[in-house]
């Protein structure tokens, strides 16, 4: 009996661990992200170099078709053991640091006081640390990593509203709060060595009057 149950557990873990491509299939909006576009360009160029002629668009379509078909197979295989995962939470999808995000974004929060904007929080800045204990926590970092992507714009807006409410409480004399992302491309080792400036721009700006929160 025990030997059978242990075998069932191992079988279940094995099936649940089958790599799926759910992320590829479900987040089609993310294909437009520059990091994903750069990966497609890099892979299509390397595959073409070894004789498999392709381009980023063809490769994207091929990957999507394979991912859709593979996901259907994996879902079928997992069906008998899915209740085991659902009940006990023994999830086995370990997608960690799959792709370096070459076009990340840093959260910035500014407040308008006496007609002048002042930065109160900037991600990873030692000088602007308003609510740093919360915003720099690992769980919030994971959340903000996701919210920098366009597909999470609704959730980002919800979090921006929460931040605006907190800013209204913490800065009683502030008139407005501005929450936005500084999007940029991470520098290559050569660019760092040459001292090249990293190009970037602010985007997804939420500019909120604070009077409504008082």
């Amino acid at each position: 009996m025990r030997a059978g149950l242990v075998l069932v557990h191992l079988l279940a873990v094995g099936l649940l661990a089958l790599p799926d491509a759910r992320g590829i299939e479900e987040s089609r909006a993310s294909w437009a992200n520059p990091t994903v576009q750069a990966e497609l360009r890099a892979w299509s160029s390397r595959l073409s170099a070894v004789g498999w002629q392709t381009d980023p668009t063809t490769l994207r379509n091929d990957v999507l078709a394979v991912a859709t078909s593979w996901n259907a197979t994996v879902t079928t295989l997992r069906t008998p053991v899915q209740p085991y995962e659902d009940l006990l939470g023994v999830r086995q999808r370990w997608r960690m640091f799959v792709v370096p995000h070459r076009y990340p974004a840093k959260l910035h929060v500014d407040i308008l006081e006496d007609g002048r904007w002042r930065t109160v929080y900037a991600a990873r800045s030692p000088d602007h640390r308003w609510r740093g204990a919360q915003l720099d926590d690992v769980r919030v970092r994971a959340m903000l990593f996701r919210y920098g992507w366009e597909r999470y714009r609704r959730e980002y807006r919800a979090f921006a509203r929460w931040l605006a409410r907190r800013a209204g409480e913490d800065f009683p004399s502030a008139e407005r709060v501005r929450i936005r992302w500084w999007g940029y491309r991470t520098p290559s080792p050569r660019e760092v060595a040459d001292g090249d400036a990293v190009p970037g721009e602010f985007r997804q700006t939420a500019d909120v009057a604070l009077a409504r929160f008082r």
């Binding site: 370096p100 995000h101 990340p104 990873r124 903000l144 990593f145 991470t186 080792p189």
Partner: peptide, 10 residues
């Protein structure tokens, strides 16, 4: 990969 992952602010 590790160089660029370690450049991510997240």
């Amino acid at each position: 990969a590790l160089y660029y992952i370690l450049q991510q602010p997240s």
